[in-house]
Computed example of a mutant assay.
Amino acid sequence: MSLILSEVINHVGYITLNSEKTLNSLSLPMIQALKTVLDDWRSNEDIACVFLQGAGEKAFCAGGDIRKLHDAIIAQRTIDPTIVPDECFNFFCQEYQVDYAIHTYPKPLIVWGHGIVMGGGIGLLAGASHRIVTEKSKLAMPEITIGLYPDVGGTWFLNKMPSAYGLYLGLTGTRLDGADCMLLGMADYYIPSSAKDAIVDSLQKTSWKGDAHQIVDDILSHFNAAVNIPNSLAAAHLTFVKQFEQVSSIREFSAILHHAPPDDEWITNGIKGFESGSPSSAHIILRQLQLGRHLSLEEVFQSELNLSCQCCLHPDFVEGVRALLVDKDLAPKWKPATVPEITTPWIDSYFSPLWANDNHPLHHLGKNYMLWQK
């Protein structure tokens, strides 16, 4: 079975993530196949527009295949625990290059963000020129619950959200629906899932004479205009989220969170996500967003590759995946176990550079796109 399906109809290139049983989770072979198609179509004059979707109705993409990364880390630890496993390095390095390619793609790139969109799926959605959500879209960056952090450009798009929503979502893993995504700048169009066939039909019937980006915008805006977007729960909690705008420590964040109004399901779920997550991840996420406020897109992916590889060398990522997907006991044993046990040198170690600037694996981003294939 092909992990990526692709076809071209009337100058529209359709790409389907084809792993419905895994909710279209990204494996390294899938990332490589997606990379190849996007690169081929980038300069193909017959392609005016790209439409990226997931197989089935349940998910666009539920994230990365972290179970394989867990297995690679366990195997590497029996050999040399100070070395990042090749499979982990290749996965993150090539995933971020695909994300960057989408952010900088010269042609209209539509993402049909229907159903579950998590982790790596958000990485594919976030940089697209035309991002669609539906009434069934469910987005989240719950990496704190597996000892990781919001990567795939999270440093970039979380920092661009209004107020302190980016920090709050990163530290709690709170889920978003389509209305929330429109509020927070994670989507450009809210369109009923029932309109998909009509959108595809419109794309296939267009003449593609003129500005392709404007043509796509006109088509999607037509469908978007007919929709009454539901009320956003995130918007309803703006006053609450504003309290986190000046937070400079995890203890401050925790204190505000635990003084929240009782019996509020949206906030209660956020508390659960924060409390069950890795204490190390909490500190990493806060520093990630603080340090990343003024980074360029290229610098974001370069810094995230370093941080992700460091997570493979530290204990919590593999432990979080074990608890969620391997043993499924949902009882991770974090090291250190509590927020007060976290020290500054410990968090510093996560941000310690693995490469010098001139030999960083992603040093070429923004200079010569084609280098990323070599």
Rank of each mutant, 00 (worst) to 15 (best):
I347T: 03
S27L: 01
A236T: 10
D327R: 13
S352Y: 13
R131Q: 11
T239M: 11
F89K: 03
Q204E: 15
D211T: 08
I73H: 01
T206R: 01
E298V: 00
T268R: 10
N224F: 12
I31L: 10
T174G: 11
Q246R: 15
E341K: 09
E45Y: 06
V50F: 04
Y189F: 15
Y190N: 02
H363D: 04
L124T: 04
D86M: 09
T268E: 12
P261T: 09
V339C: 06
F253G: 03
I83S: 08
H11P: 01
S254H: 11
W266G: 06
L324R: 11
W372L: 11
Q32E: 15
A48P: 05
G64R: 02
P345T: 09
L220C: 06
D177F: 06
K328S: 07
V8E: 07
T268W: 10
E20H: 03
N44H: 11
L286N: 05
I47Q: 03
N90A: 13
N224D: 11
H70L: 05
D40K: 12
A59S: 11
P315A: 08
V98G: 02
C93Y: 11
F89N: 05
E299Q: 13
D65M: 14
H314A: 10
G270C: 03
K374S: 14
A140Y: 04
L362D: 02
R293F: 07
D211I: 00
E45D: 15
D201A: 15
L69T: 02
K209D: 15
S25W: 06
A164Y: 01
D46K: 14
S27Q: 08
A140L: 08
A235H: 09
E20A: 10
E45R: 12
L28I: 01
N269R: 10
H363G: 00
G119I: 05
D263E: 14
G127L: 08
I9S: 09
